[in-house]
Design a binder for these strands. Sequence first.
DNA 1: ACAAAAGTGTTGACATTACACCCATGC
DNA 2: GCATGGGTGTAATGTCAACACTTTTGT
Lengths: 226, 226
Amino acid sequence: MFQLGISVNCAVYAYDGESHKVLLIRRKRAPFENAWALPGKLIAPNDDLDATVARIIKASTGIKDEDIFYSRQIRAFVDTDRHPFGRVVSIAYICLVRYTEFEPQDSDLFSMPKWFAEDKIPKLVFDHDDIIVSSKRRLVDSLRTKPIVFQLLNKEFSLPELQSVYESILDTELDKRNFRRKLRDMPFIEDTGFLQKVHQYRPARLYKYNHETFRAMKAKGYVFSL
Amino acid sequence: MFQLGISVNCAVYAYDGESHKVLLIRRKRAPFENAWALPGKLIAPNDDLDATVARIIKASTGIKDEDIFYSRQIRAFVDTDRHPFGRVVSIAYICLVRYTEFEPQDSDLFSMPKWFAEDKIPKLVFDHDDIIVSSKRRLVDSLRTKPIVFQLLNKEFSLPELQSVYESILDTELDKRNFRRKLRDMPFIEDTGFLQKVHQYRPARLYKYNHETFRAMKAKGYVFSL
DNA sequence: ACAAAAGTGTTGACATTACACCCATGC
DNA sequence: GCATGGGTGTAATGTCAACACTTTTGT
């Protein structure tokens, strides 16, 4: 055993109604104080990973309820020369949050947390650029193979919103009729009967995701695929 | 920063002609000396992850050439109470090797390295059971979505062998005609013109995998899927 | 000639794509 | 009534699953 540190870094994604965004902060400490980085912190001696992730999300977005976001480990980034102070292992996480429920704000850990569109991401410290690349790949993959879009939308959402998220993240245009048919035919996507009024035009129907139904189907061999 | 260790553990898979096997060793050190475990070691201060993985494979199988196996990180396993000596982070890897090119043997690090069928795996130390579960899931997933079976077979292989590997790992029976058609139609699987003579019956045609062809197709948008 | 494993095609069901117009709402 | 975004069906094509017999080889 020798001296080193373990940090957890989170690639936090949200969808603001236009496109997907990732949350970046400015560092409050050396090295590279004030540089743009992924929100992260060293793991405390008795904290586990999930607690550390929750702490990071809480600090960067001010959210109270820690249990309402999705997070999965991507992998560990280890490189003898990635950190000037010595070896630091970074365990990277991807987190999905609902834009409207999280409000980036300064904290003891970070300053200036801000949402960035994918093509506006500045140069980041350490190897955080690599982590962003891996997390985006994972995001695309997860979106295609798991019902996790719902983590980015309000509990009640419209099909146009759903399609817009997919188009933004997968970076393709999708056929409206085919997309809608496919999604509507999934039994775990339920019509709430309510309408959405966000503009002066025709309101969209609101749907909600029923996780129990999905779980039951999955247990019987169903595989989600967009 | 505080005192801890980083270990690398490898789930090493091979196919022996019958079914897929995973390599386990007996520990040479405390704690739990002599218990069955995944081959692994603490990372040395100036080694990177790939070098550590290579060292582990070399020690457990005696292979000389370190560059002929496939390895990918699964994820980091971190748990404050996973190791009795204090916090140890285990970074887990999945490795695929060719059975005939690797010969398990005792070394300075491990004793009694041995191939185990999936249903014969003994109780392992620490959380290595969890690592095995994750690595198997990853193996199945990778087999379905990437052309990596070839890492388990000789450079020249027959279609019956190929099918057998898939059947063993996916734990299903596959239709011979459908399987063969699908694989033979992949342009990166090339007929060598040679025949295999392993028994007294009709010999099978030998094929080989052309990675360059696959890469070119992938660059043009092709996605592998079994 | 026989035992064992290698090899080969067709059909029906299902899923995916392509494509253009009407509808509901607020101003 | 008009501007804007929400909503709908069908036909053609491609993909996947089911299925049984012939060929080659060594003994």
